[in-house]
Design a protein around this nucleic acid. Sequence first.
DNA 1: GCCGTTTTCGGCCCGACTGTTTTCAGTCG
Length: 572
Amino acid sequence: MNNAEIAKVFEDIADFLELKGENVFKIRAYQRAARAINHLPKEIEVMVGLGEDLKAIPGVGEAIARKITELLTTGKLEYYEKLRAEFPPGISTLLTIPGIGPKTAMKLSSELGIQTIDELEQAIKDGRVAGLFRMGDKTAENILRQIQMVRHKDMRIPIGEAQPIVDHIIDALKTIPGVKNLTPAGSVRRFKETVGDIDLMGTADDPEAVILALVRLPLVKQVLAQGPTKASVIATNGLQVDLRFVEHDSFGSLLQYFTGSREHNIILRERAVKQGLKLSEYGITDRTIDRLEKFASEEAFYRRLGLQYIPPEIREAMGEIERAEQGTIPELVELSDIRGDLHVHTDWSDGQNTLEEMANAAIKLGYEYLLITDHSAGLVVAHGLDRERLNRQLEEIAALNRRFSGFRLLAGAEVDIRADGRIDAPEDMLSRLDVVVGAVHSSMGQSKERMTRRILGAISNPHIDIIAHPTCRLIGEREPSEVDLEAVFRAAVEHGKALEINAMPSRLDLKDIHAYRARELGVKLVISTDAHQAEHLQLMRFGVGVARRAWCEAEDILNTRPLAEFLSALRR
DNA sequence: GCCGTTTTCGGCCCGACTGTTTTCAGTCG
């Protein structure tokens, strides 16, 4: 049973307790534990295996620890089963509709016998819902609208699709005179792998003019709300964009508040209460004298709380507040630290640009090296290179290198790790390359045991230096393959092999919490784009975002090192 | 149910909006 599944049980328990009208703090305790479990970089099964104390997880105490153990050992939880049996089966479905909370769900279920969204829709159209106590026509209409929203739209989109919209809007609005501080907040700023909406914040001499410019942008499909300091619009891809302006002197607290995460802010506010302070988007209030202090910058805001500045990417309630108290927040890796890209395709296999074009694009980014990793012959669909074509590519790389100074093309390959763990290229071919990347491209539905054995085989292969996209997931399209990552991480350390953080926004693999755990265990990491055309090299920032969310410093990432140092680190 | 440089008992984050109400419950971020 994985962490997500365990967390789901506790989320459901919280929902059921809420339906029962239980103590709100008890409900909150279950929700808090569920969130903590979801964000845990380590699988709980692994923790139990290592004999670690589950009560070390923040929000998990005696009772929940016992319930987790019962879940893991027996596969189910009696407390949960009993609770679930108390309610009609459809009621959880009703709770998924925004605007319907526990009270409304219970009312709909007990008084109208509604179990499904279709039944709810029918009841609204019949006027039965509006007739309930403390419900009216407007409430019923709102629910109907939410049902339609839920039906024809996937709520979250990959950050790679949101970021270009953010860039476009900011570019268009920042030229307006008197505009300052225009920046995304929320999950975009924290570089989460998917985002549900875009929050933009700023300060301006004339906010209304900026808002007018926003609603007139071609990419705005619909205007939901438009006021003097705030606007909400729907972009052409269906994503909601909120833009909000405040006075310059309170920008810091506003940005902090809307950047989140929710969990981070809750802990921050709980801590502030103990100091006699109250936090809000407007600033910090000293409760004893009831005076509000405003903050122009986030740095000043955190400083007032006695905390070191915390980068947005790690504001996830993973212990960053304690570290900020001690002044030991790590200096996270930055895009400008990256000296080369290590996973790049050209028109020799399934890429679109020539070797020279890719090299020039890398030089333009200020890189010192670029590892060419066209597919090997096993991937016929990708026009993989056989011995003869690889020889010719090596000659061309050598010829190009004679023309460069301060930059080097490295010869490599992305070899396929076959279903049985063998590699689709002969050893004598691999030994002529500077660096070899291995990756799984087929039979991704194998059992956990087979997939793990397959990857461990590749890690122990002396010719392979880096394992690319270790879980093979495609966000929103393909689930990660089942693999014992803890075993993979330990093997990578043992054999001195590097694991990739794939920066392609549809992959981001390893993902944040997995990269976090890998770093903890001392795995060497690289960040690569898996570029199939020159423009893709610019996707590096998404991989850096993942690395920062994993608390990585520059020294944790091999391709922040100068060429000679990078090569010797790989060679052990 | 969790948790503790004010506590092993008594607290537990903050503000806004909406719709239904004559003062507030429910929901959300």
